[in-house]
Every structure is written in structure tokens, then in C-alpha cells.
């Protein structure tokens, strides 16, 4: 353990911490690693944000290991055992109106939730980023036209716009995802445009331009990276809203189709029994709540970590 690597700049275990917290990075990769490590430490120190991180991590693990965690098939019915209370007959969280095990359904439902969140979190910001940076960078009539488009979509009530899209595309999980993405992008476009306006006349952008770089190259290669941190924060904070919108669509019967164990649809089915068999609606309600809280805690923490204005104070 005494011989230090001679050529490689990858350190040994003991030096790892020092290497990661170095304030004089030796390479671009090293700098990224340091930046990431510092962020991670800040996250770790922010107890609430870290809790949020753990919640999201559990959700991901739950989705991956669903077959191991579930005690029954998520759609296996047993009418004789319908509405069994939690803890009875080995049903950890009870059974629903068709005698299906709620715990198993929740576990499998996490895959749907993750699928929705994953796709929306990728498509909406990218689309918003594209529109926003192009508008901000080019300015003029392109900006005018694109921003009018953003205004039009912003002026719609979100759930109603999603409803309209779902109704147009036909009910189903795929339509729900597309609809939510379509309603979620305008705020990102606005943020990206605002950020772009502040940097488009910066010296280094002009330098790149003088070197003869193309418009798209500048936007994607040099403007996007600078917008990322504010977008990421916003995405994390929006995740909760996306889950709730998906649940709202499920609640109105326009999200995932039965018997898929989508959490919002589960609440919707369970509300009929809310007075006497509270667990049918409350368990998925709790699940939605915990996951949204996780995303919110994480997003809130990330804002503190990534927002440079904040870290100065």
C-alpha cells in the first residue's frame, strides 16, 4: 500500500478522498470528478435532501426487484378475499376490491411511475431546452414566434391540456406520458430562454462564433451546458407534479388501463371504499405522497446546492 502510482493519475484508496477534494484538478475528468464529489458531499450533509435521494433510490430498487419483493402476482384476483384488511392472511397492505394484494400491486406499480417520470423527465426538458435556447440565441422573429407558442401552451390549464391530448390519443399509459410531456415543456423553454439571454453576448460565445462555429453547434455545445443546472433543479421539483398529474389522469380513468397497477388509478378505484376500507385508497395515496416528497426534498436540496447565488450567501 505504500507504492504510489507513477504514471496514472488515478489514486489509491487512501488518496481517493484527497484526490476527489483536490482544488487543483489535473485533468478535465479529474475536475468533473471533484465537482461531482463536492456536490455529493453537500447533498450528503443536507439531511432532508439526502432523505429524498434515499426515497428515489428505494423506488428505483423497488422497480428493479419487483418480482422478488411482490408476494403475489399483481393482477391475481381472489374475489373471496376481497377487501382484506392490512396484515391479515399475509396481505401486508390488505387487498383491493377484486381481492388483489395491494403491496404487490404497489411494487409493480413503481415501474409504471418510474417509466412515466423517466420518459417525461427526459423528453420535456430536452424539448423545452431546444425551443428556449434557439429562441433566446437567435432572437428576432424566431424568438417572437416560439415564445408565442410557449405562451399558448402555458395559458392552458395543465390537467385539461393533458386530458385533451389523452382524449385525442386514446386512453392508455403511452398517451398519458406523451400528454404530460407535451404539457410540461413550456416552463423549461422559458427558463432556458432567460438563461440564454444572459449569456448569448458573453465574450466566450462571441469567440466561438468568430471561430466559425455553426449556430446549432454553439447552442448545443456551449449554451446548453450553462442552462443545465437550473433545468435539472426545475426537473426534480417538477417530478412530483408529473407524478400527481399522471395520478390525476389515472384517477379520471384516462391513464393506465386496467388491470395495470398504476397508483392514481388504484386510488380512483379505492375511493369508493374510502370510509370503511380506507387502505384501498390510502396505500397508493401514501405511495404517491412518499415518492413526490422524495423528489421534492431532493429538488429543494439540489436548488440549494446548484444555485450559485444561494451558495454565496
Amino acid at each position: 500500500m505504500t507504492t504510489a502510482p507513477v504514471k496514472s493519475n488515478v489514486p489509491d484508496r487512501a488518496g481517493l478522498k484527497a484526490w476527489l477534494s483536490s482544488d487543483a484538478p489535473t485533468s478535465r475528468g479529474h475536475a468533473r470528478a471533484v465537482q461531482f464529489y463536492m456536490g455529493w458531499m453537500k447533498l450528503y450533509e443536507n439531511k432532508l435532501a439526502f432523505l429524498g435521494f434515499l426515497i428515489i433510490l428505494s423506488l428505483v430498487l423497488m422497480a428493479i426487484f419487483a418480482p422478488l419483493l411482490a408476494t403475489t402476482e399483481p393482477n391475481a384476483q381472489d374475489l373471496a378475499k376481497r377487501l382484506t384488511a392490512p396484515g391479515v392472511d399475509g396481505h401486508l397492505l390488505g387487498t383491493d376490491e377484486l381481492g388483489r394484494d395491494i403491496w404487490s400491486r404497489l411494487v409493480y406499480g413503481s415501474r409504471i411511475t418510474l417509466l412515466i417520470v423517466g420518459i417525461v423527465a427526459f423528453t420535456a426538458p430536452v424539448f423545452g431546452l431546444l425551443i428556449g435556447t434557439v429562441a433566446g440565441y437567435l432572437g428576432g422573429w424566431v424568438d417572437q414566434a416560439l415564445m408565442r407558442l410557449v405562451d399558448i401552451f402555458l395559458a392552458f390549464p395543465k390537467l385539461i391540456l393533458a386530458l385533451a391530448f389523452v382524449a385525442a390519443l386514446g386512453a392508455g399509459i403511452e398517451s398519458a406520458i406523451i400528454a404530460i410531456s407535451l404539457t410540461a415543456w413550456p416552463p423549461y423553454a422559458r427558463i432556458a430562454r432567460a438563461e440564454t439571454l444572459t449569456i448569448r453576448n458573453a465574450d466566450y460565445i462571441s469567440a466561438v462564433r468568430l471561430q466559425g462555429a455553426g449556430v446549432m453547434h454553439i447552442i448545443i455545445g456551449h449554451v446548453w451546458p450553462l442552462c443545465l443546472s437550473s433545468i435539472i433543479v426545475r426537473v426534480t421539483l417538477d417530478m412530483a407534479g408529473i407524478i400527481l398529474t399522471a395520478a390525476g389522469l389515472g384517477f379520471l380513468g384516462l391513464g393506465a388501463q386496467p388491470p395495470e397497477p398504476e397508483w392514481g388509478a388504484m386510488i380512483s378505484a379505492g375511493r369508493k371504499f374510502i370510509l370503511d376500507h380506507w387502505w384501498v385508497a390510502a396505500m397508493p395515496g401514501m405511495a404517491i405522497f412518499i415518492v413526490s416528497l422524495g423528489f421534492n426534498l431532493l429538488g429543494d436540496g439540489l436548488r440549494d446546492i446548484l444555485d450559485p447565488k444561494k451558495s454565496q450567501s
Binding site: A240, A247, G248, G264, A281, I288, N296
Partner: peptide, 14 residues
């Protein structure tokens, strides 16, 4: 954050 995270229909019924 509790407020942000609560599904409103469930909250309302409760």
C-alpha cells in the same frame, strides 16, 4: 413540501 406532495383528491376526501 408536504403540501406539494399530497395527491389533492386523496387529501380532499380525507
Amino acid at each position: 413540501l408536504f403540501g406539494y406532495s399530497m395527491p389533492i383528491f386523496w387529501f380532499g376526501l380525507m
